[in-house]
Design a protein around this nucleic acid. Structure first.
Lengths: 380, 380
DNA sequence: CCTGGGATAGAAAGCGCTTTCTAAAGCGAG
DNA sequence: CTCGCTTTAGAAAGCGCTTTCTATCCCAGG
């Protein structure tokens, strides 16, 4: 039913081989022949049969992008950046397949199989990893095998895979995909979540805050752990410098939730119950921060007058919230673009296979020095 | 290098045909044989070669989803819903390919070719269409040909394609893809933008607003036109009932921009210049509304005290903006899910091939009755 | 005028799978 | 017991393309 190579060949009065060569363009074809073929292609409205060509050439132009939640701009921005690197104009029509894993390691594996089945040229995994050792192990093994088989594997916004064997102290192999053609080992574009969180908490401490609540993300995710570590590191710094141990309180002032608004809302209520005298609340990310703000306001507290609030990520809406949110900016677009280039092999692998992108503290209106006396809401 | 069907067959001591039958499951295979094959598949970690299977079966399990901007939650939500309908558990591992067209008709066509090349099983086009007759014509023809060739084509959030021929008054053929197997004609899930805008403007008029500015979207998009038509219809309704012609002013109080925050900001500045006495501003969508609010605040006007603001879409952040945004809710998730089911043929085509989803007016804090005397900002 | 080599194009062998078409059993009925 | 049917499995022919491997053709050099 569909027009095939043979049809074009017949029309142009050449062999199928010649048509193929004209279209792929990596073999000399005489000018006259070429234009005759091209005309036939035009006239017949011929469109290459992708599967057939992938089969014969043993390669495809699909690139998988795994995201936790495509409706979340955090992932949307990264996915968009990855895809912008393979615009038809730039990369000869690679197709990005965006897969919504919902953050489930199980689904992640399933999609990986699906992509492997399509013989995807590369796979980009975004979003934080789950720390469950069993899944982590299965995923690492899987990714490493995929990479070894020639599929480019890039992790974006999650920590590098643990070392495969016992050798090699700490990710310093230095041959991030040099040896084996087409990759060989998974590459990573990591975010400096620890440093960002540390600076953010440092900012709050510098303003004079001492009772800082933390509505953290899901306990089992690496991103959550890293941000929490940065937070505590800042607390520890402060204790060291001022002989005032804030770390002891940290656990009591931390609650965990999901990366959504209602977690921020519920978490804040819980924090207020535990410590009505809070002067600042840190949120797992900006979306959570919105929920934090809502809960605070309902409790009759003003921001930043009574309580300061800060988020993480700096999504587009963060600057528009009111008050504008103090947050840690993650250059999602740059990170995604870089991951995309790495996935296409258009950028050489970073040393050790790991590139870390900087995060930046964005101080805005939602944080200010704490007031001496502020109204204390009635406990729930 | 990779494990093939033949390897599995050899290991299981059966023919390749049998293995294929076990895996596709649409042919009887004796229980003992089946489990022997399954075990071999396990042991060899066999993964089907998608391209080969697509080639042989002349079908693929890719579904294309075209979006204007994947980083925008409006599209993210729809894409997510489409994809949720083809979870591996539900639809046997269909893969959604999300393509970012940036709203360019040119890129839309390019991606369509890419998808066609992959022999995609279906294509879902989201986002408003461009009204440029030339492109519209090219796109319609293309989609119709695709559909006729067996690819399911679903439009989501854009108006149905114009009738192909001169016959048929107004999209009432009633055989939305019944005749030809696998579709035949493009299907549509349309939004009631006109009705929504009409109700929204009605709400403002009922509150007592008479000088209503409109920061509309790009002039050439259908969505923009429909919302504008609804707006003007409400204005006309009012004139008819109260003998007070607001329509004459409408053009002067309308400015066009893109669907982004800065358009809202700039547009509002321009509107304020044209009519410092505005008491309400309607925005093309919620993102634009954020920019409108920012500009208003900078001009020293309070919301809704001095000026009411309303948006469109009801994205997740809209309820959290402050003040919470009055807006017209579009059930994006439902619409996307429906489009997904239509694309997979899991839901029968609606009468006439067009399903319209209802929009709902969400009245929140950003709109209120106008004040008798309000400060008038200095013109820029 | 002959010959070696570069440029160009065709023939044909797959790529790994699906799917007829065909064959071999296994079984109840006559 | 034999016949004819159902059930199950293998053989083999492609699906449409890429890519060697070859075969021309043409021209410069001898």
């Amino acid at each position: 039913m569909a027009v095939t190579l043979a049809d074009v060949a017949a029309r142009a009065g050449v062999s199928a081989a010649t048509v193929s060569r004209v279209l792929s363009g990596n073999y000399p074809v005489a000018g006259a022949t070429r234009s005759r073929v091209l005309r036939a292609v035009e006239e017949l409205e011929y469109v290459v049969n992708g599967p057939a060509s992938s089969l014969a050439a043993a390669s495809s132009d699909l690139v998988g992008v795994l995201v936790n939640d495509i409706a979340d701009p955090f992932f949307g921005i990264m996915a968009s950046a990855v895809q912008s690197e393979m615009e038809p104009e730039k990369a000869g029509g690679k197709l990005a397949v965006v897969c919504n894993t919902g953050g489930s390691p199980q689904r992640e594996l399933t999609y990986l199989t699906l992509l492997q089945r399509q013989r995807a040229a590369a796979v980009v995994l975004t979003g934080s990893a789950v720390e469950d050792p069993e899944h982590a192990e299965a995923l690492s093994a899987r990714l490493r095998r995929l990479a070894a088989a020639g599929t480019r594997v890039v992790l974006c916004g999650r920590p590098p895979l643990p070392e495969a064997d016992g050798d090699g102290d700490d990710g310093g192999t230095g041959d991030g995909g040099k040896g084996i053609p087409g990759g060989g080992a998974p590459l990573t574009v990591a975010f400096d979540n620890r440093g960002g969180a540390r600076r953010l908490t440092g900012h709050l401490l510098a303003l004079g805050h001492r009772r800082i609540g933390y509505v953290a993300g899901p306990a089992e995710r690496t991103t959550t752990r890293h941000r929490l570590e940065g937070h505590r590191a800042a607390l520890a710094d402060h204790g060291r410098d001022h002989g005032h141990d804030l770390l002891a309180e940290a656990a009591r002032l931390t609650v965990h939730g999901a990366y959504d608004r209602s977690s921020g809302y519920d978490g804040t209520l819980e924090l207020l119950r535990r410590e009505p005298g809070l002067t600042a609340v840190l949120a797992a990310n900006d979306t959570v921060a919105l929920g934090v703000c809502a809960a605070l306001r309902e409790a009759g507290l003003s921001i930043p007058g009574d309580v300061s609030v800060a988020g993480f990520d700096d999504l587009p809406f963060s600057a528009d919230a009111s008050p504008a949110l103090t947050t840690v900016r993650i250059p999602l677009h740059d990170a995604g673009a870089r991951a995309g280039r790495l996935a296409l092999g258009r950028e050489s692998a970073p040393p050790g296979g790991v590139a870390t992108v900087r995060t930046e503290l964005m101080v805005r209106a939602s944080t200010a020095a704490p007031r001496a006396n502020r109204p204390v809401p009635q406990a729930g």
